[in-house]
Simulated scan of single mutants.
Amino acid sequence: MTGPRTPGDAAAILPRLAGTPLVLLLDVDGTLAPIAERPEDAVVPSETRQVIAGLARLPGVRVALVSGRAAADALRMVALSGLAAAGNHGFELVGGDGESRVHPAAAPYLSAVRAAAADLREELASVEGAQVEDKGPTVSVHFRRVDPAHAGAVRDAARRAGVRHGLRTGDGKLVVELRPPVEVHKGTAVLTLADELGGGAPSASLLFAGDDVTDEDAFHALRGAHPRAVTVHVGASPHTAAEFAVPDAPALRAVLAAVLAARSDETLQDG
């Protein structure tokens, strides 16, 4: 696999984002917000929020968040009304009207998720820096603040809990995710959101940006189902299914700002 291209001044991607509707699907942590030591400390910069708000106000532009966080938490971080969101890696969906629904495939496993979270809180209580985040349909075990000498033990404990409770485990950036063992992930989430927001129309344009291993499902799914979709990996990674890459969250903001400027000019000309 060749490495992803950089969009440069965004000229390489702007023609592919000229359709209507333009559906922008955006991961949050590491993509809009810099990664924080604790999930609750992560913040979407005001400059980024202003760009997203400007895009969301434009006619024919639809913005949705795609996050491993609970959907309500992702929406809280961006703090803009009317956005759709997929939370918990696709196990939660929130429409632009604020109505939330949990994927029906998760229902049989919710008690197992709660039990796994309780077990891990007890087992990891003595490990300084370990954090067990119960997000309803999924559990995240964070070890970013754990002494590196003990990080492997935290990872192993999370994986054992997954096996014990019949859950699927997956690695992220210094986090292990425990989820119901069904085919729901960010790939299924972006396809559902794209469909619901009109991204499947012949005239539509699509973009997804993400930074983590879990976002690879979305890159694969979009490029397979919508070959003209623009996929952007945020951060340094030569091994990604995304077509384009930018070095960090501020660089992605610059790309989104260029899209905002181009679409705003089109709106003025049409007016």
Rank of each mutant, 00 (worst) to 15 (best):
T240G: 07
V63C: 09
T169N: 08
A229E: 05
A201E: 14
D156Q: 15
V255R: 01
P7Y: 10
A125H: 02
F219D: 10
G98S: 04
T214A: 04
S140A: 15
E92R: 03
R76Y: 06
P39Q: 10
H226V: 11
R144L: 11
H220T: 15
A18D: 14
R168H: 12
G210T: 09
S126M: 00
A118E: 14
P59A: 10
G200I: 09
Q269V: 15
A249R: 07
V190Q: 04
D195S: 14
A262Y: 01
A245S: 15
E243F: 06
D211M: 07
L83M: 03
V61P: 04
A86E: 04
V234P: 06
Q50L: 13
V78W: 04
R38Q: 14
L207W: 02
G199D: 11
K173G: 01
Y109D: 00
A204Y: 04
S111Q: 13
E133R: 01
F244E: 10
L83K: 00
F143A: 06
G210C: 09
E177A: 12
R114S: 12
R144I: 12
G198H: 02
L260P: 07
A249L: 06
P7S: 13
R263S: 06
A204Q: 02
G30K: 03
D134S: 05
A36V: 12
G98V: 06
V127L: 02
H220K: 12
L25R: 02
E123K: 05
P148V: 01
R159V: 13
F219Q: 09
P104L: 05
V127S: 03
H185R: 08
H233S: 09
A257G: 08
V113P: 00
R228T: 14
E133T: 02
S264G: 12
L174H: 12
S126A: 14
Y109E: 01
P180N: 02
V190E: 08
V113L: 02
H226T: 10
F244I: 11
P238A: 15
L14G: 10
M1N: 08
A151N: 03
L24D: 09
E128W: 01
P238Q: 12
T2Q: 14
G271P: 00
R160W: 03
A254I: 02
A84S: 14
H89E: 05
G96L: 10
G68R: 04
G200Q: 09
Y109L: 01
A84R: 03
A158T: 03
A85S: 09
L25I: 09
P7L: 14
V63K: 05
A225P: 00
A86M: 01
L268P: 00
R69V: 05
R164S: 06
G3T: 14
L252S: 11
L193D: 10
A116W: 00
R160H: 10
L22W: 05
P247T: 07
A254V: 10
R62L: 11
A74F: 03
R155A: 15
A36P: 07
L174C: 12
S237E: 11
L206E: 07
G172L: 07
V44F: 09
P247F: 07
V127C: 03
S81Y: 00
R76L: 13
E128T: 13
R69N: 05
R69D: 06
L25N: 08
